[in-house]
Every structure is written in C-alpha cells, then in structure tokens.
Design a protein around this nucleic acid. Structure first.
Lengths: 120, 120
DNA sequence: TTGATTGCAAACGGTTTGCATTTAC
DNA sequence: GTAAATGCAAACCGTTTGCAATCAA
C-alpha cells in the first residue's frame, strides 16, 4: 500500500513492481499482483483498464468508490464524483427491471498541460 | 456484420467465431478479430469488457455511440442513453481543464429473469 | 510446529502478427 | 496483374497458478 500511495495516481502492476525494485525492495511480480487483487477485493484500491486491457490501480481516495478523469498523455488522474450520475446509474436499472446494478464510468482526455502541446 | 447482428446482443469474438463455424462458414478466428476491430474503428460496433478482460461486441443500434445495461446472468443487454449523463461527461472535463474527453460507461446487473432465480 | 507468505517459472487466455496463399477485380 | 483479404501457426502480453522454499507465531 505504501509503494502504491507514494506517488498518488494510477499505476500498472508492472510499473509498481519496477518501482519497488528500484526502491531496493526485493519482491516478485506475482506478489504484487496478489496484493493488488486483495486490495481491490477489499475496496482499498480502484481499478481501471487501459484500452490495451492492462489494469491500472490507484489507492481509493475516500471511503466510497470513485470515478476518474484520466489524462491519456501523462496519466495524471483526478477523482470525480457526481451524486447525479450515481443516482442515474442506480435508477436506470430499475427502469429495465434490473437488480444489483453496478457501474463502471471512466473518463479520459488530455489535461491542461498535455492538451496544448505543453509537456508534463 | 450479418453473423454479428443475427442474434442481437453482445458476443465475444470467440463465440462469434464458433457460431459462424456452426453455421457452416469456413472462417479463421483471426479474420473474425480483424473484422471486429475494423468495425469498432469505424463505429459500427460497440465494445465492452468482461471483468476477465475479454471483449464483447455488439452492433451499434443507432448512429450515435450508446451505453449498455448488461445482465451478468444471461448476457441480455439493453442500450441506454441519457442526455444528462452525456452532458455531464462532457462538462466534467472542462471543469478540470481537460480537453478531448471520452467516456466509457458500463452498467451491469441482473435482469428481471435472472434476478429472481428464474431462468432465461 | 504449523499455517500463511513469497519467489520462481511455467501455464493460461484472449488477442495480434508474420507470411505464404487465395481471392477479387 | 495487382492489391486486398484470408488461414494457419506462432508470437505476444498481461495475468494467474503450482509448488517448493521461506517466514512468522
């Protein structure tokens, strides 16, 4: 959890593993995967997917699940929530007779730095 | 596109391939993948991901991109759209200085049949 | 001593690619 | 004749698992 939180933001399991090795920690890639999956199961981290299918992990900023606005250029992420959208997600299921509805909402774009050709 | 549309709803590339073979069409799995990717690039099909990472494809029901409410029990899917949510997705980026924002919204639940122990 | 954690390496599963062959025009 | 589409098999890549070794209580 510490290695994951150090630079806050999304990291892939592989990046996290590499980062830990560079920090001098002797740890196996599979151990990283096992830990991340455990954390995700317990709701301590949120997970998103790159278009490639690769999973990115981030320490959950609050007690409730969050959604993220992720920069495609530099990976910078911002947690965003909206009661309105949460509510919509909850009710749209009812309207179609669905129960136990879960939702995945991911926003990607170019942040202020990356969007205007600037570097981050 | 025909094989994909025949039973409307989401199918994996592998399921689609198997279905085409059963229908007597001699086609390679990679050809199915190539076609699906082409269709997705052109906006003719929408793509979602199973938790496993497997991709599911569905013919896009209208000219605009859609979001889906997908039954975890039987795979039944309903296209859902909301101007409100589309608008939210578009503006939340602006508020954080992001441009060129895209969004992925996936809803999953149990449909009326699967939710109350019934079979579909 | 006993159960949980770790590492290594191999397996896994979905997807993509190299390349020779076939098809379409 | 030429360019695009296809099939086969191998490669790819992120992820998971079997199992023996290690660690903790």
């Amino acid at each position: 959890m510490h290695a994951l939180s150090e630079p806050p933001g999304f990291v892939s399991a592989q990046e996290l593993h590499a980062r830990m090795l560079l920090a001098g920690q002797r740890v196996g890639l599979n151990t990283v995967y096992r830990a991340l999956n455990t954390f995700a199961d317990r709701g301590w981290v949120d997970v998103v997917r790159r278009p490639s299918g690769e999973q990115l992990f981030r320490r959950r900023p609050g007690p409730r699940h969050a959604h993220y606005l992720l920069c495609r250029g530099c990976g910078h992420s911002v947690a965003v929530t909206s009661e309105l959208v949460e509510h919509w997600a909850g009710t749209v299921g009812d309207e179609h007779g669905f129960t136990d509805v879960e939702h995945v909402i991911e926003l990607t774009g170019l942040c202020a730095h990356c969007g205007d050709g600037g570097a981050r």
